[in-house]
Amino acid sequence: MELRHLEYFLMVSEELHFTKAAEKLGISQPTLSHQIKMLEKEIGYSLFNRVGKKIELTKVGEIVQQEALNIQNSIQNISSQIAAFSKGEIGELKIAVLPGEITDLVTTLCIPFNQLYPNIRVFVESTDQVEKVVIENQADFGISFQFNQEDLLHGTKLYDEEFYLISNQKSEEQKVQFTSVLDGPLILFPSMHQCRKMLNKASSEIDKTLEPIVETSSIKSILNLVRSGVGRSIVSRTLFEFYDTNDLFFQQIEKPTLTREVFLVMKKNCYMHYASREFIKLLVREIEKLHFNTEKEAMHSLHSFVL
């Protein structure tokens, strides 16, 4: 059964006149009559009683009319919902991010995104398996510090994340060696945190062991402890920029320089819907506004691929 046949049938059932219905449909009356006969043959019953020049619906015709109207309404509803979805008026957005500062970055961007698209529900999943979640379609895209599944995923480097030593005391030196950082009391994230994993690796490479005086997963607590003079801390530039740190001071770390790559991860050959594109636009604007260390070629690729 073709939708075209139901459209023709509904027009005839409305007009109860083949010639008038054919005129409104923009086809010839013989063509319309032939199409209705084909529909009747497929259903196995007559849909119209033909009494002289007049026609009327049969009982079966009344059943078909009601169901055809339901189908027509469903199709119209599908079209309107697709139109609303494509404009960001409805829908949902799922983002997978590694636990830590990137989660803070993404959740902060949910505020302007919600102001623009209040009817789109946003789900931010903090997970150590960003690539797996994206591959299994549990997230529309992910943000990660690594990118391995090149056969299934498309990854674009957003920026290089730099790490700072922060303190409540201003130093004359803009940079500090990593070995010197380890000499004083430190307030750090727990070992399960992505930032801490990187610090543990860097310290083990120089045969040092990190022994922080305080461990906490709360960035606000870390900042307050640093303000109070309990110790210094090592945080990403993302966190330093996103929180009220005007009363704190930072130094860049060298030998080794502590940086990591931040990737936008998407599934290959997968349609990027409107909500994803709009959120990524906000993300890119924020990165550019903060003057993070980005690669022009990578950002150009992202603009052409997604934006």
Rank of each mutant, 00 (worst) to 15 (best):
I120L: 07
S203N: 11
F145L: 08
E42M: 08
L283Q: 00
L109F: 00
L98P: 06
Q72H: 14
T238N: 03
H154T: 15
N73T: 15
V51L: 13
I222T: 04
K255W: 00
D128G: 12
H273N: 12
Q169D: 08
G184N: 11
T156Q: 11
R237E: 15
S191P: 01
V12C: 01
A21T: 12
L39D: 01
L188W: 01
S80D: 03
G26W: 11
Q35M: 10
N77A: 14
V12N: 04
Y159Q: 09
C195R: 10
P185R: 12
K267S: 08
E205D: 15
R4G: 11
V230H: 09
P30Q: 06
V106D: 04
E261F: 03
R121Q: 14
S233Y: 10
F113T: 02
D247H: 07
V134R: 04
S126W: 06
I222R: 04
N114A: 06
E297R: 11
P112I: 05
T259S: 07
I234N: 06
S79W: 08
Q129W: 05
I27D: 09
Q76P: 00
S304N: 13
E215P: 09
L182Q: 09
E150G: 01
I82R: 12
L32F: 03
G100T: 11
N224I: 00
T107E: 13
P212V: 01
Y117T: 00
Q65G: 05
F147L: 13
Y45S: 07
N224F: 00
K24C: 02
E56F: 15
V106S: 07
V262Y: 07
I287R: 14
E62F: 04
K20V: 06
R260K: 11
A83E: 15
T238Q: 04
L283Y: 00
H5F: 14
Q149V: 06
S79H: 10
P190E: 13
L186D: 04
E162L: 13
M192R: 09
M192Q: 14
K132N: 14
V306Y: 11
I43T: 09
E288C: 05
D160C: 00
E136T: 15
I27K: 12
E288P: 02
E62H: 05
G155A: 10
L32D: 03
G52D: 08
F178W: 12
H193S: 07
Y164Q: 10
T127M: 03
S191M: 05
S233K: 10
